[in-house]
Design a protein around this nucleic acid. Sequence first.
DNA 1: ACCACAACCTGGCCGC
DNA 2: TGCGGCCAGGTTGTGG
Length: 270
Amino acid sequence: MPELPEVETIVRQLRRPLIGRTFSHIWTDWPRQIVTPDPAGFNQRIANQTITAIERRAKYLLFPLSQGDTLLIHLKMSGQLAVVPAGEPRSKHTHLIFGFTDGAQLRFTDTRKFGRVYLLGEPADILGQLGPEPLLPSFTIEQLQRLLTSRKRTLKPLLLDQTVIAGIGNIYADEALFYAGVHPGRNSASLTPAEIARLHAAIQKALNLGIERQGATISMYRQPDGRKGQMQDEFVVYDRKNQPCKQCQTPIQHFTLGGRTTHFCPQCQQ
DNA sequence: ACCACAACCTGGCCGC
DNA sequence: TGCGGCCAGGTTGTGG
């Protein structure tokens, strides 16, 4: 579910309640959610470590801890995080709970159980394979040009490849390609310099709008405080099949590309 | 190098 | 109401 803007929204909301809190223990009834170390080792190692910061890299949440480890969380399709007081009833889909020394808890609720957590001394072991962050100033048109033209791949699946660009998912790929006026099925190496410049601006526009609107709620996504995002109200193509294009009134079409539903305007994205 | 597809899970929705 | 089939914001592994 969550893409870069949703994860960024969650990170921003978790900083105030969590920075400075100290872990005491974890509880789980679905140990597969814990990738490394094994649950017993995880429990032992996280105890007495204080959260010193909360950051985002691609779709990962990073919690640097006081003794040098980093807690990594990936929410995958349906993961949600919430900070709750001790004693709150546990939802059916909460399979991992982080307890703090003051009794508060960080709860990881995940209907589909795809989400994963890692406790690592060296987070680069996981994060090292990721491509550039598209919202950093260092992500330039020239860099995007190199990423697109140094290989021959279908454009949209390339944008979804986290080792090429980090953080874009199915929603924001479709939205960005519409803003750029480029068809999702184009070969990456065939884009003109003008199209690449438009795509660069379009990626940043879509992601920044998503952050401004605090993410997109289609079904399950909620912010840590339980509120829905507002980005779904801004969709130009995603989830709008057969509805009129906001620019030219042509019905939005959809097809499958790289195994993902893809929405586009046949008029504006030829 | 690139692509298609299954797998990992559960629930919601649609048609019958 | 119930049931089968299909869909879902992500990622990884396999095989062609």
